[in-house]
Design a protein around this nucleic acid. Structure first.
Lengths: 145, 145
DNA sequence: TTGAATGCAAAACCTTTGCAAGCTC
DNA sequence: GAGCTTGCAAAGGTTTTGCATTCAA
């Protein structure tokens, strides 16, 4: 298993390392992102805050996302739409995806041999893994016709 | 080894399947993309054509990229910059990446156990693999300090 | 108190679209 | 010749920035 990472912790650590402040807004964004289901983009976060009457500017979200990214709290998740998509990095319940390039179907998979090899590779290169992105593209059973 | 795929072939096949035409412009874009080194975005393709005095509109490039994507000739490659990044899908000489979220350093790796497991998974799910994207994010040796 | 962060709105960018003219098949 | 494509330029979206004000440490 990948070492479970404590998101709030790694975010605060990053801020501290850079002499940045843990503001109210950054905390709210961190919280929201953590309690969110799967994919999201900058605007959907903004919309949620707005719906709850929390006044957080789009710019603040756009400025915070890269920090969460670097802290490893979230990861980019290539959407098929426009703009960037992200998702929470979850060590537990981790799985990867097969994506049908024709119909868009997504199959989730988890393979411990692969996870194990990843860790081995990281040791070999002295690389400290925070999260990963593994996607297989091709044609699902139905679309092979 | 992943079955080497013939890019021009799969592109033409896709076009035929959809009753689309193999125009001069689409051919030029296919060629350029195939002979290009690694990463690129729509605008860098446009710039190259312009430099060579080939008059191909940005819009044409933007309209062709999704086709090349679906044909499996290219794949999305999350850049750290804005906009989409792509890279040629190469079955031969394939390798994956470790990306340092702090300094941006990229370490290339290839692991045949992982490749083998991928193929096994695809058989299991009756998924016909065209290409994949596997990236490990974290801190490189230097940035762990 | 002090440097950083936020909000707002404008600016900058990236992508998509409508339409007339030009090409494949 | 018919219908799909291209080019151009304008429209549509998304992300970034400048600056005065507010805030965390």
């Amino acid at each position: 298993m990948v070492k479970p990472l404590d998101a709030p912790e790694s975010f605060r650590t990053l801020l501290a390392r850079r002499d940045l402040k843990f503001t109210y807004e950054r905390r709210r964004i961190l919280d929201l992102v953590q309690h969110l289901g799967r994919h999201f983009d900058a605007d959907s976060l903004y919309a949620r805050f707005k719906r709850r009457k929390e006044r957080i500017a789009r710019a603040t979200i756009y400025r915070t996302l890269p920090l969460l990214l670097e802290a490893g709290v979230i990861q980019k998740s290539a959407g098929m739409g426009k703009g960037d998509f992200f998702e929470k990095t979850s060590a537990r319940g981790h799985h990867d995806h097969m994506i049908c390039v024709h119909c868009g179907k997504i199959i989730e998979f988890f393979n411990e041999h692969i996870e194990r090899e990843q860790k081995r590779l990281c040791r070999k290169y002295k690389f400290r893994l925070t999260f990963h992105d593994h996607r297989l593209f091709g044609y699902c059973k139905k679309c092979q016709a």
